[in-house]
Design a protein around this nucleic acid. Structure first.
Ligand SMILES: [Mn+2]
Ligand SMILES: [Mn+2]
Ligand SMILES: [Mn+2]
Ligand SMILES: [Mn+2]
Lengths: 220, 220
DNA sequence: TTAAATTTTTAGGTAAATCTAAAAATTTTT
DNA sequence: AAAAATTTTTAGATTTACCTAAAAATTTAA
């Protein structure tokens, strides 16, 4: 059984490992909003428990057990987010902090029944995949909007930034999950992207385009 | 902002204060499954924070703030129990431990929306009243089944014991909330109670009868 | 109203998760 | 390949929530 804190470390390491193979102390510290010295302490503890492999000065990797635990927390986090949005009418930018707490409730029964109650959803309100109870989920193949070329089309199926400011901005622009988009132009001057939606034409900055994930329908 | 632990102490003190006016250190220790010395430590801390009034050797009472905090936790606990039973199909004997964790999730928005989602329930699965968001709730007037006389009738509206063993037993006997009962006899030998339900006749021990709460329909 | 029993507190410590400051190792630059 | 910069670890404290053992206060019984 892990503490609330250990679970958060495992989850953080898991997410960082999606980007870089060996996860560094400082990266964990930044993500966890704590100090590198504290991270070293915790890493040793997790290593003792067999949840991470650790060689001094060379970062950490999750063991099989550690990874499974992390995935289980991710599963809970995302299921709770679906609950908050679909059942309690929260907005997609309001759910993260509460899910951050709910993910630590320890009851297998609870999460299985919640999953069923929600109709076994495959993705959370931000398009992130929800692992099933065995920890399995499809590694979805997203393309960043910024990588699309002029004339490309696709559907918004995720975001890679969960800050409330960003999500609120997308909502205001009408760029929500499931929306069909078409790249009508890429501005020479600043690289901003001109997008055609079903009902309107908008322009978004490169910075915004970086964090929108598209499932491509191919060129058209 | 209180810690998880402080909240549990406040809730425990609140419940004990429903029975005895001044709440003793040992009583808190027993309820919290901890040692009296630890309770003394925590009481001092709660007193420093203005959540309890405390005079050495004379037990504690909740301050107004302390009481409001406790009631808020009770509200959360009971709303989550309703959620678990009504939405996730838990049995009434399975919800306590999970609610014990869920009650500490800190989000006013969450609990208000949950309340609404559940249809603003007035009582939890055990018949205990749910405070509204201002902490108000009717002090329900229950009579213990054991206090009824032969010939009395009433409706089961609560239980004063939440152990899984007791609740499962009641369920098996068909003594669930809302059931109409009629006292057909009180056995001379052991004081056990003969009860007529709509469809059958059963006999329960004094021990069981003590913990069933009845809203009396008057004699008939 | 003493003595005995019970309750409560104090004193002194432990373990978990932090922190700051300084030392050590590694990586990058010159 | 040094020097400089960065990253990481160690050393030593702090805070929270516990604990045990012993002392002090209160309550109950003789
Ligand atoms: Mn968390
Ligand atoms: Mn999400
Ligand atoms: Mn609790
Ligand atoms: Mn209850």
């Amino acid at each position: 059984m892990q503490s609330y804190t250990e679970e958060n470390y495992l989850k953080t390491i898991y997410h960082l490992a999606e980007k870089t193979t060996n996860v560094q102390t400082n990266a964990i510290a930044e993500q966890m909003q704590t100090k590198p010295a504290s991270v070293t302490d915790m890493i040793k503890k997790l290593a003792d428990k067999g949840l991470v492999d650790y060689i001094k000065y060379q970062g950490v990797t999750l063991t099989e057990t550690g990874k499974n635990t992390a995935i289980d927390i991710v599963r809970k986090h995302r299921l709770w987010e679906v609950f908050l949005v679909n059942k309690l009418n929260f907005k997609w930018d309001e759910v993260h902090d509460v899910a951050e707490e709910l993910e630590h409730i320890k009851s297998i029964e609870l999460i299985e029944r919640l999953d069923e109650f929600l109709g076994f959803p495959k993705a959370d309100p931000h398009g992130d995949p929800i692992p099933d109870k065995n920890g399995r989920f499809a590694k979805t193949q997203f393309i960043k909007l910024i990588e699309l070329k002029m004339g490309d089309s696709g559907t918004i199926t995720g975001v890679s930034q969960h800050s409330s400011a960003f999500l609120k901005h997308l909502e205001k622009l009408g760029l929500t999950l499931g929306k069909q988009i078409h790249i009508s132009d890429i501005t020479d001057f600043d690289g901003s992207v001109e997008i055609r939606l079903s009902d309107k034409q908008i322009n978004i900055s490169r910075e915004v385009a970086k964090h929108i994930l598209i499932s491509s329908d191919g060129k058209n």
